[in-house]
């Protein structure tokens, strides 16, 4: 099982969307960590992990997200997750992971959030 990623950035709204497809597990986590570090390093305000095509996540994957979230917060950035499949959501819930992390069920919620963020920053 492997992990494919695709990055879409919207510099105008200072948003980066990283699409994850496949499995985020022990094998794929190290490469993903590097990639996520690069995304955060580009300095955009809001970084969204789009999990609509993510089939599988293990604790190793969550660890990477944890670490990145912590780092983002220290840098004044936001890391959010969206479109989690039910069993992915379950893993998040079991680990009570990131209670204060923004999570969006669909595009509408995400757009609303982004608009609100933009409105606030103006």
């Amino acid at each position: 099982m492997k992990l494919d990623t695709r990055l879409v950035t919207d510099p105008d709204r200072s948003v980066a969307r990283l699409y994850l497809a496949g499995a985020l597990n022990t094998d794929t986590a190290p490469a993903f960590e590097q990639e996520l570090q690069q995304v955060l390093a580009s300095g955009l305000q809001v970084n969204v992990l789009d999990m609509r095509d993510l089939d599988y996540i293990s604790s190793a994957g969550l660890r990477v997200i944890f670490k990145a979230a912590k780092q983002a917060r220290e840098a004044g950035q936001r890391l959010a997750a969206s479109h989690r499949k039910p069993h992915i959501e379950k893993v998040f819930e079991i680990l009570k992971a990131l209670p204060d992390m923004a999570v969006f069920a669909n595009d509408q919620e995400l757009d609303d959030y982004l608009d609100a963020m933009q409105a606030r920053s103006r």
Partner: peptide, 24 residues
């Protein structure tokens, strides 16, 4: 074993696997 439910500032990185094994 990481303590669960902490906010991001206090959350531990790692130590999550055993929770998944027990819960699943």
């Amino acid at each position: 074993r990481a303590a669960l439910g902490a906010d991001i500032d206090h959350a531990e990185i790692g130590g999550l696997g055993v929770h998944l094994i027990e819960q699943l």
